[in-house]
């Protein structure tokens, strides 16, 4: 990446990134894993490995991204699933053995696993 050398260039880059983000939101399955120290201590590493494994088994592609602590440490590991053009839905205390069901019912079937859902991340956050 070349240096950004003016405010105009920064603003243009920001817009470009916002558009890229919006496009990804509309086109991709994005899985967010809370991987701050609180998340990792609760087992986010194992959960993430399981997500990659289960996606691979089903030949699914999704963007897996790590995020920091959103505050609900007691519910870690937190995993958000965002289907194309759908809200970002958070699951709490996601252990590896819960991953397959979330993928089958939510990502493939389109129906969130309500009993494990914490809430929806507001789009304007």
């Amino acid at each position: 990446m070349a240096k950004i050398e003016s405010v105009e260039a920064l603003k243009a880059f920001q817009q470009q990134q916002q558009q890229a983000h919006e496009q990804a939101r509309q086109e991709k399955v994005v899985i967010y894993v809370g991987a701050g120290t609180c998340g990792l201590a609760a087992g986010a590493g194992e959960t993430m490995e399981q997500i990659e494994l289960e996606l691979g088994k089903r030949n699914l592609t999704a963007e897996i991204t790590t995020v920091g602590c959103i505050g609900m440490c007691v519910r870690e590991p937190l995993v958000d699933v965002q289907l194309p053009n759908q809200p970002r839905i958070t699951y709490g205390n996601v252990k590896p053995d819960m991953v397959a069901r979330i993928i089958d019912e939510h990502i493939i079937g389109g129906k969130p696993v309500l009993e494990w859902v914490v809430g929806v991340v507001p789009q304007d956050w």
């Binding site: 958070t90 129906k111 969130p112 309500l114 809430g119 929806v120 991340v121 507001p122």
Partner: peptide, 12 residues
């Protein structure tokens, strides 16, 4: 969230 009209609370 879904056509089946299930509602999930927003964080707020």
């Amino acid at each position: 969230t879904q056509p089946n009209q299930v509602t999930i609370p927003s964080y707020t």
